[in-house]
C-alpha cells in the first residue's frame, strides 16, 4: 500500500505553525516513513500533482488568493485540518475585523508614520494581479468544510504529531491536557 499523501499551506498566517510541524524534532525521520508530501512550502511543490489524503491549513482567509488556495485544497484533499488559531478564528490578522477596510488601507499606504512622507503620489496598490482583500478575515471553516481543528499559537508539536499519526493509523487521538492551548 502506498503511503498517505500530505499537503500543507500557509494562508493568512505567519508560518509559525509550519515551524511547529518541524518542531517534532527527530520524529521527522519517522514522518517521512509514514507519509509523503505533495504541495507544501516544506518541499516547495507549488501545485497539486495528485489527489492528497490530508491537507494541513495554517492561517485564515484575508484575501481572494487565500480563498482560492483553500478551495483548491478542499478539492484535492480528503481530509482538511485547520492548524492554529488563525485558521480556526482568524487570529491576529482578524484584529482588523473591527476596522473598515478603507481605513486599514489608508493607514497602511497613506497615513502611517512610515509611509506618510514616502508615498507622495498617494497610491493605494490596486493592480489587477494583486489579490483583493476581503471585507474581514474569515476562519477557514466559514469558507469550506474543515474536518478537524488543532488549536494553539502555534499548536504544540506533540499535538500536530499525534494528530497526524492518529489520522494515518486510524487510531484515536491521544490528547493530554497540556497539549490543547490557545496561545
Amino acid at each position: 500500500m502506498s503511503k498517505p499523501i500530505v499537503a500543507t499551506t500557509s494562508l493568512a498566517g505567519c508560518f509559525g505553525c509550519h515551524m511547529s510541524i518541524l518542531d517534532i524534532d527527530e520524529r521527522i525521520l519517522d514522518l517521512i516513513h509514514l507519509v509523503e508530501f505533495d504541495k507544501s512550502p516544506i518541499d516547495d511543490i507549488k501545485k497539486f500533482s495528485r489527489k492528497c489524503d490530508i491537507g494541513l491549513i495554517e492561517g485564515g482567509c484575508c484575501n481572494s488568493e487565500n480563498v482560492h488556495v483553500l478551495k483548491d485544497f478542499r478539492e484535492n484533499c480528503k481530509i482538511l485540518v485547520s492548524v492554529g488559531e488563525c485558521a480556526i478564528m482568524g487570529g491576529l490578522p482578524a484584529m482588523r475585523n473591527g476596522i473598515p477596510i478603507r481605513e486599514c488601507l489608508e493607514e497602511a499606504y497613506l497615513n502611517g508614520p512610515t509611509v506618510k512622507e514616502n508615498n507622495k503620489l498617494k497610491i493605494i496598490p490596486n493592480d489587477p494581479e494583486l489579490p483583493i482583500l476581503l471585507d474581514k478575515v474569515y476562519p477557514c471553516h466559514e469558507v469550506v468544510k474543515i474536518d478537524y481543528h488543532l488549536p494553539g499559537c502555534p499548536p504544540r508539536a506533540d499535538l500536530i504529531w499525534e494528530a497526524l499519526v492518529a489520522l494515518v493509523t486510524g487510531n484515536e487521538l491521544k490528547m493530554p491536557y497540556e497539549v490543547i492551548k490557545y496561545d
Partner: peptide, 29 residues
Amino acid sequence: FCPACEKSGQCELQALAYRYKIMAPRYPF
C-alpha cells in the same frame, strides 16, 4: 484573541474551554 491576551493561561473562560477540549466553536464568529 488568546495569543495576544495578557490574561492567557490565567483566564477562566479559556481554562473552561481547555477543560472541555473545545477545538473550535460550532457557531460563526
